[in-house]
Each structure stands twice: as C-alpha cells, then as structure tokens.
Design a protein around this nucleic acid. Structure first.
Lengths: 149, 149
DNA sequence: GTATCTGCAAATTTTTTGCCAGTAG
DNA sequence: CTACTGGCAAAAAATTTGCAGATAC
C-alpha cells in the first residue's frame, strides 16, 4: 500500500530538488491528494482533503504549495469562466470536459495527433508553441436528467 | 464608415430582442468595441475603451453588459490562470494562443476536423458535448526577444 | 406607464502578501 | 547555522449585488 506513496514522494523530492526547493509535509500532502484523486479540486477542496492528515495547515499554505507544484510542472492549473481555479495532478495527456450546469470536470483520454498540432503551430506565426489545452463544453448526464432537456 | 457600425447595431438589436432585452447605448458601445478590435480585452480595458464615447459608464455596467452579450451568444468569455477574464467579439471559429510571459492572446485561425471532434465526443461518455475550446500555450516573439531565450 | 437598465458604493469571493517563528538540509 | 517555509491575519484584485433614479419601448 506504500508503493504509490513512495513513488509519488520520490517524484516530488526530485522535482523540488531540481528547482532548489525543500521537501515539506505540506507540499507532500497536497501533491499526494492531487496524484491520488480523479477529481479536479479547488484550493478550498484541497484544504479540506489534507486537513485530516495535517490539521494545522492553512489555506494560504495550500495556495503556496499548489503554486510550487505548478511551477515544478507536477500539477496543472485550470481556470474557468465562473472565476474558479481547479488543480489537476494527472500527468498523462488528456483533455477535460466541463458541465455547463454543475461545473464538474471530467477527464477525456487522448491527445491531438501530432500533425494536427503542427498545423496549429504554423497558424500561430511569431509564436513559439509549447503546449495546448483542449476543453469540451456540454452537460453531464445527471444534469441533463435533472433538467429533462 | 458607418457600414460596420450599422451592421453591428442590427445584429445586436436582433439578438437582444430575441432574448427580451433592451437596446442601450452602453451595451452598444461595449459590443462595438469588441466587434471592432482584434485584441481580447479585460473588463477593465473595455471600460477604458468606451469611456471616451460614454464618459459616465461604470465598470459594473461594463460587467453587466459583457454578461448580457455572452448570454446572447455574441461574445465569448475566456478565463486564464492568472485569474483574469478576457472577452472575444470574434464569432468565426478560431483558437487562441496565449503568451505565458505577457499574457497577450492572439487568434489562431481554423477549427478541428469534424471526425476529430467526434472522437473526443465518444471519449466523453455520459456527456453531451456542445462545443470545445482549444488554446495554445507558449511565448510570443517580443517576449522571446526580451528574455533572449 | 412600467419593466428594465444604469451608476454608485458596498459586499463577496478568491487569491496573494508581510511578517515572525519553525524547520530542512 | 541559515535560508527556505508555514501559519496567521490583513491586503489586494476581480466580480457581483442592492437600490434609487433614469430610460427604452
């Protein structure tokens, strides 16, 4: 049961070290939670999730830890039209689909074919493309049922 | 020189009417600005842009007008990791590329091929896909030069 | 005439910052 | 040891809201 934990810890330690940053239990707890969940929590939700393990942790620290992890490239930050930010610890290539009613975000596997990306790259002249983000919009089944659309 | 203006006004009047909303000079000024610019301004920037024509307009009204236009489908709202929201009056299908240093957003023409979108649709089971948003990340030429990367 | 809209200011929400004590290396 | 961190509370930034007067239709 500690395999995953150890693996995450190793990844985190190396990433922090590479950036001249220190390994702390707060950063570890935040990273562990993101790496183990399939949800895409807000900073507030991360706080609630790590409180049981670290009762003293503060929201400000969660924000600082999240920014640190984003800076190390271990976590992605997603922002949405309602002003909320969510964090995604999944490093496999995938897209997101977001429900326009309840705001829930689900993963959609896959990545764009390389030639597709190359085409986009050419369309963005005078711009060095380092990556992309693809997000589907629509409605999840529970919300469709609820509204009987 | 009034051709564009009249055309925009007609589009706006119809869209508002369809939704049972009123045509006002504030909504008109905000829409005009978005329809005529290639930039993707923040609410604050829209305020500055329309102030010369409507000195009395307030930021709250700009926000309200923008939400109204988004609701009518005339304008798209874009949100970013730094917490800022930008508004895009271009209705042609296109993507965006955003500079990770200065935050500027430029348009990238094109849209994904239908079969590509269909594939994504299938990957998002239990989800009715109504659209998508594709955004490139990277750095614009001025910023690359400035940092001599 | 009347429901909708604007402007103002205050409220909310989300995120960031300064500072001192605590801790990793 | 010494610089990097965390916790706290206060600040900052972005957006929304309540209300009274103004306006579109």
């Amino acid at each position: 049961m500690s395999v995953h934990h150890d693996s995450h810890e190793g990844i985190l330690r190396s990433a922090l070290e590479e950036n001249g940053l220190r390994y702390t239990e707060q950063r570890s707890a935040v990273f562990e939670h993101l790496a183990n969940t399939k949800s895409h929590p807000t900073a507030d939700e991360v706080l609630l999730a790590v409180r049981p393990a670290l009762p003293g942790i503060s929201l400000a620290t969660v924000y600082k830890s999240l920014e640190t992890l984003v800076g190390c490239g271990l976590v992605n930050k997603l922002t949405y039209s309602d002003g909320s930010s969510r964090y995604d610890g999944c490093t496999d290539p995938h897209h997101h689909a977001r429900c326009g009613r309840c705001g829930r975000v689900v993963d959609v596997p896959g990545s764009l074919p390389e030639d597709q990306v190359e085409g986009l790259r050419l369309g963005a002249s005078d711009f060095v493309v380092t990556g992309y983000r693809l997000e589907l919009t629509g409605y999840c089944q529970p919300c469709l049922t609820a509204e009987r659309v």
